[in-house]
């Protein structure tokens, strides 16, 4: 299959780069929602991974049950369901914030962290009890299985779509936060809730909104993952949540382009570590990268250098 004279190590390197970018794209997507919520509330939403799983499962249910793909053809159906998932998971995020976080907003931050951990255990087991502990699969016809061969690299089309989707969503979020009025209000609440309230911003509404956008993005990421890999499981949120959190921290938590950068860096680091050092140590490389970056840049790559309280 391989023609003589071909530069094998070089091709493998680029193939691994492409592998890493795909995984990184997913991390970045999950990290986007994480970082949104954190940026505004300074709350590590440990249940974000479970909302991501929820999105993946709801996406599967909708794809299977409504028979939409039969009427509309797979592509429009997938797009419509995307919108529905974003809405539904956003709604769950809204409920979650009301139930588990709002009562704790005035208390110390770690109380909210433990509440988030409890919520994450609850949601994960709820999903397991509802959908069963087995792997679930996405219908085969909704998956894009075409693989492009570019310059000796095998690149599945789905990978390109996935990467594009995460870049687009990141851009959209960035513009939303920085160019719209609501976005300005969100930034105001993130900077100083008291002052924002004095400026006539309904802080509770903004926080609810953020808790719909963040989880909504997470849900959409879950469905993208389902479409990309084709199979999902109730406990996958833990790992993706953790990786996304790591990615958000690497990029500087609260920073939207940072989440993207962190996610991609993490994905590439994992792929390279797995390929050239030892595959079984893959996650260890991810965390090693995190530690090394934080040693040299204690607030992440793009994180603001928070001035010490003086």
């Amino acid at each position: 299959m391989r023609r003589p004279g071909e530069d094998v190590p070089m091709i493998e390197f680029f193939q691994q780069l492409s592998n890493g970018l795909a995984v990184g794209g997913i991390y970045a997507l999950v990290a986007l929602g994480y970082t949104m919520v954190y940026g505004v509330l300074k709350l590590i939403n440990f249940a974000h991974g479970e909302l991501f799983t929820l999105g993946a499962y709801l996406g599967m249910t909708l794809l299977l049950s409504f028979g939409l793909s039969g009427i509309l053809g797979p592509l429009p159906a997938v797009l419509i369901i995307f919108a529905m998932i974003t809405g539904l998971v956003g709604l769950s995020g809204f409920v979650l914030e009301r139930a588990a976080y709002r009562p704790l907003r005035q208390s110390n931050r770690l109380a909210a962290v433990v509440s988030a951990l409890g919520a994450s255990i609850f949601l994960q087991n709820a999903i397991m009890l509802f959908y069963g502990p087995n792997y679930q699969v996405y219908p085969e016809e909704t998956r894009v299985t075409i693989t492009l061969s570019v310059l000796g690299l095998d690149i599945p089309l789905m990978r390109i779509l996935l990467f594009l989707a995460s870049v687009l969503l990141m851009l959209a979020m960035y513009l939303f936060i920085h160019k719209t009025k609501t976005g300005t209000a969100i930034r105001a609440v993130a900077t100083d809730q008291g002052a924002a309230r004095l400026m006539g911003i309904d802080v509770n509404r903004i926080i609810s909104l953020v808790f719909m956008i963040g989880p909504g993005l997470g849900g959409a990421a879950g469905m993208l993952l389902g479409l990309y890999y084709g199979q999902i499981r109730y406990d996958m949120g833990t790992l993706y949540g953790l990786k996304a959190f790591t990615a958000a921290i690497i990029g500087g938590i609260g920073n939207i382009p940072g989440a993207m950068l962190g996610g991609i860096l993490l994905g590439v680091a994992e792929a390279m570590g797995a390929a050239y050092v030892a595959p079984a140590w893959k996650d260890a490389f991810a965390f090693l990268v995190l530690i090394v970056i934080l040693i040299f840049r204690p607030t992440g790559l793009l994180g603001e250098r928070v001035a010490d309280k003086i």
Binding site: A22, P279, A280
Partner: peptide, 10 residues
């Protein structure tokens, strides 16, 4: 490899 992952392309 590392189990419980989704991506084994590397």
């Amino acid at each position: 490899l590392q189990p419980n992952e989704r991506d084994y392309s590397a």
